[in-house]
């Protein structure tokens, strides 16, 4: 599964939409690159709400955003290389730490180990304060070279 369109976009601009991923559009996700770090940003929109009373973000939307953050960070890591490997999620574990409020949500990933075939990635999602994450995820990503 190739993310060549997204890789090309990220090589071209330090911020923008996640090109070529319709699901990312559905979430309204954008990326921002600062040096080695990619941060994904999803401004609040009503279609992200998972429980109506009181309105809270759907945990699945937050998880989906964190998976995208992991994939975007892996792609960014390969920016100097000639070939982008295929990137496939093997598994993901999400811990929900706080209820998602009706505000902008951010997600950023840290690659714990980049192996030849598997990347081990930690992701956090937060809202108003980076130090108060709303969710943390651990993901294994298959790399097909």
């Amino acid at each position: 599964m190739s993310f060549d369109a997204l890789a090309a976009q990220m090589a071209d601009a330090d911020e923008g939409p996640l090109s070529g991923i319709p699901y990312a559009d559905t979430l309204g996700a954008e990326y921002r690159i600062e040096g080695d770090q990619v941060t994904l940003i999803v401004p609040y929109r009503k279609s992200l709400v998972g429980s109506p009373q009181p309105p809270r973000l759907h945990g699945g939307a937050v998880a989906g955003l964190m998976e995208l953050a992991a994939i975007a960070q892996v792609i960014h890591q390969f920016r100097q290389e000639d070939m982008l490997p295929g990137v496939l999620p093997i598994n993901v574990t999400v811990d929900y730490l706080r209820a998602g409020q009706t505000e902008t949500v951010y997600a950023a990933a840290r690659i714990v180990r980049m192996g030849r075939r598997v990347a081990n990635v930690q992701v956090e999602a937060w809202q108003d304060e980076r130090e108060r994450p709303i969710a943390a995820a651990h993901m294994n990503v298959m790399l097909r070279r």
Binding site: G64, V92, V94
Partner: peptide
């Protein structure tokens, strides 16, 4: 999440399956 090539249907994003 993974668009198909040459106009073929793509694969559903894993995030949507998570939801």
């Amino acid at each position: 999440g993974y668009p198909g090539e040459n106009g073929e249907k793509g694969v559903i994003a894993s995030g949507a399956i998570f939801t």
